[in-house]
Design a binder for these strands. Structure first.
Lengths: 348, 348
DNA sequence: TTGTATGCGTTATCAT
DNA sequence: ATGATAACGCATACAA
């Protein structure tokens, strides 16, 4: 490997002092064009690259933003993350794009049992944190103590107030979904989600559902509310339950695509036709929503944009020292595909 | 934020020298149990965390491994990555698990146009590199010059020799897939992939396909070889072509699940029944393979393990300084789901 | 405009 | 067994 040169080598080669090189590098204006030229020539020739660790030590800023995501000890990403965030890559991509513009890099939360998140953050002197997923409350308290720019994605719990937040407008999205079914002429519309009490996201989406029904003066029917895991398997369960109990349903609003796909698969595997026998609408617009047959009608949120906005919140706090916490909401939109259709007279 | 203490503060508090603290921290044996105790007491009290940037500067090792993945300038992950590597998270997860065990962290390739990969690697003084995806040849040359432990995943091209490599046994996987269809009694078996000439992966898989057919003394029929993009849309195209040309087919071996799902969707959207009208087998075992209806029969590779092995290759070179390049191959296995069935007399 | 000197938090060498 | 001290590469306050 070509030996790494330091700022000192560049200085010598250019016949100037280390300070001048530093000035040139950082665009400090107090340097003549001529020496600037000399310095950059030397930099070229030596293929000099600044050592960011040294810079970090000296400046106190690591230019590193940490991304925390749930990884289990066995090396598996928890199913929760994968199933609720199959757009993990998109989010990261949005983050990375914006951060790199400001010369920040993304550090992934390599966790092992010997070390806590806040230890990790402290050791690496991270300039900012992005939390993907839901964690035990203590994690948030720990991180809060660090007092570092932090953004949470899709969390509404009370502790979220201490951080920047980015979410979709869950209530509106769910309203849109329900409205779509209503507009198609459906009356008996179910709602499938995780336990509504335990998650604010589910609650918001439930509210959107209720709001739409209320507009049509349709009573909420407790029997059409299905609470289980927000996973593919949860979707299977809901479908099984509906079929077993012979619950009459025109349409079903599901809080996540992955769960909706579970519902759809169970129906299809049992000989039912979607959307003829049941109109299903999801939430998220994961990639698979367009791959399944029929394509899944759903509520789309721009995840790349979500990542970009998160990055911008971090940058903004970093550059301006403005510490007030912001909450950004992204407006979702309806994507109509094949899993919903007009109300027919047939019943399932 | 609680002020960050340094090793000096710890030393003062414990009434010893910085050197002793360093010894205690790094488990250097030349320290008495008593002072060790004192030191750790001080560390506790101050909530001291070592500054990894300083350590890196002093030791010359960053304890950072870079992951490079294709991210476009607009912030989108290239479709190629997403569609061929929907298991990105799993891979990362395997990586992260092993690396964290050795106190390495993962740095994501925040790229912007002002800086090249090798610049980035040099600035951050990365200890190792993982390359996910296929890149222009010049990238490999650049990285090779850096002479840093590097592992490539799923690349066979000639330049791969200069790096550690991890792949599935593509030929065997494809052989397994074809064998499965053969065992089901199918004779007219097609093969769908990207252009075989341009990608060694496709070539390997094609060889596996041919090998299985040869065992059964079945002639390769040029008309049953479909070359197009290894994407969902490519799958759509293949299916459209088959249907339009009324190509007689019992089964179809597809080089990627995502493509197989495209084929399946096109058939289904046009009223055909899978597997009755056509047995389809994919490759990869992405999560969607089990979500679609019917479930997709496919060839599974343990992606988490792949990530773990990659990490181990890096660690090994780092710890032993052994520079000879290793190539690890993972044996895939057949996963039978609903998209394949016994040969019937009906034709499509 | 340019240079000197110091500090950032570690590790490592060399004394003691 | 412990301590002083010199790097490591850079930024920066202060001098010139």
């Amino acid at each position: 490997m070509a030996k790494k040169y330091s700022i000192k080598d560049v200085a010598e080669r250019a016949g100037v002092s280390k300070a001048s090189v530093s000035y040139a590098l950082n665009g400090v204006k107090k340097i003549s064009e001529k020496t600037r030229q000399k310095i950059f020539k030397a930099i070229e020739e030596l293929e000099y690259e600044p050592n960011l660790a040294a810079r970090s030590l000296s400046s106190g800023k690591s230019k590193l933003v940490g991304v925390i995501l749930p990884i289990t000890e066995t090396g598996d990403v928890t199913s929760d993350l994968l199933e609720k965030n199959p757009f993990f890559s998109e989010f990261i991509s949005g983050l990375s794009y914006v951060l790199s513009q400001y010369d920040y890099d993304l550090l992934l939360s390599g966790m092992n049992s010997n070390i806590t998140y806040s230890n990790w953050i402290a050791r690496r002197r991270l300039d900012g944190i992005i939390l993907l997923g839901i964690y035990p409350k203590t994690i948030y308290e720990e991180i809060k103590k660090l007092n570092i720019p932090t953004v949470l994605s899709d969390v509404y719990e009370e502790y979220a107030q201490d951080f920047h937040c980015v979410h979709v407008d869950d209530e509106y999205g769910s309203y849109l979904a329900t409205r779509h079914l209503l507009d198609l002429g459906h009356k008996r519309i179910g709602f499938a989600s995780g336990t509504i009490k335990s998650s604010k996201v589910n609650l918001k989406r439930f509210n959107g559902y209720k709001k739409a029904l209320r507009e049509e003066k349709i009573e909420i029917d407790e029997n059409l509310i299905f609470e289980t895991n927000v996973t593919f398997e949860g979707g299977l369960d809901v479908a099984e339950y509906i079929l077993e109990k012979k619950i009459q349903l025109d349409g079903l609003v599901v809080v996540a695509d992955i769960m909706a796909i579970g519902v759809m698969k169970y129906f299809q595997d049992n000989g039912y036709i979607i959307p003829n026998d049941l109109s299903i609408i999801g939430f998220d617009d994961i990639r698979y929503a367009r791959y399944c047959s029929p394509g899944l009608t759903t509520i789309n949120q721009d995840v790349v944009k979500k990542g970009m906005l998160s990055a911008e919140l971090i940058i903004k706090e970093l550059e301006t020292k403005e510490t007030s916490k912001e909450s950004i909401v992204i407006t979702p939109k309806l994507i109509v595909r094949g899993s919903t259709t007009n109300k027919k007279e047939e019943k399932i």
